[in-house]
Amino acid sequence: MRRIILQGLMTILLFFGTWYALTQIDWIKIFKVKQVTVKTEQKLGELFWEVFKKSEIEMNNAHVLHSIDSIVSHICKANKIDRGKLKVHVLNKEDINAFALPNGHLIIYSGLILNSDNQEELAGVISHEIAHIELNHVMKKLVKEIGLSVLISMTTGNSGTEVIKETAKMLSSSAFDRNLEKEADIKAVDYMLNANVNPEPFADFLYKLSETEHESTKYLTWISTHPDSKERAEYIIEYSKAKGTEFKPILTNETWGKLKITLKGME
């Protein structure tokens, strides 16, 4: 009997030993798994951005772009995020929406800026989207929803333009799963606190827009696709409460005011 147990244990040990020995090799590097992913992501980012570029109007007003860039750069600098890898685009559309595409493309609709009561609300949404990019949620969602093989076939030109359009639309109009959303919310609060931006207005923004009476409900893509806004607002408040810091606005009141006036004039 003892011999059998010993032999059994040795067999188990042999398997785990083999596994352990094999883990000492960097297989990811050998099989170039990451490179494939990086290249695929770059190509997908271009493909999806092309879809929006063709169908929407990109803003090129210097003041609008400069103001948004100030917010994004401020958040990136305070959180040691490489600003260069983010490609921010502002589109002239009344929907209250912002979303991330592969390879660091961050799309912001003018409707979101116009419906933000203050710059902290906008900074909150931007931080949330940067968090999705930094946490690699975009690629995770794509792989989960449509599969790596379809994604690769898109980049090699073996997929129809309709599939690419539909996938791009899906990225702009559907949320990530609950855990990923929460992870991005918490990360966004961290980003804001590090950047001395008050996260409370971000929570208020969620509260405010979850009210159905709000005048802009029909354009509320960002909120309608992000479920349980009230619950999210609550844990954002709860999480940020414990970490008191001094808050400072990123843009001056004049710049923020001018930004909204400029956008209103373009509607």
């Binding site: 398997f15 083999t18 596994w19 989960k144």
Partner: peptide, 22 residues
């Protein structure tokens, strides 16, 4: 790996190779 957030790691590839050997 296919359906959740799990990603391909060296540990996973090592496991697959060990499983193939066995």
């Amino acid at each position: 790996i296919l359906f959740t957030d799990e990603t391909i790691t060296s540990r996973y590839i090592a496991y697959v190779i060990a499983a193939i050997i066995f």
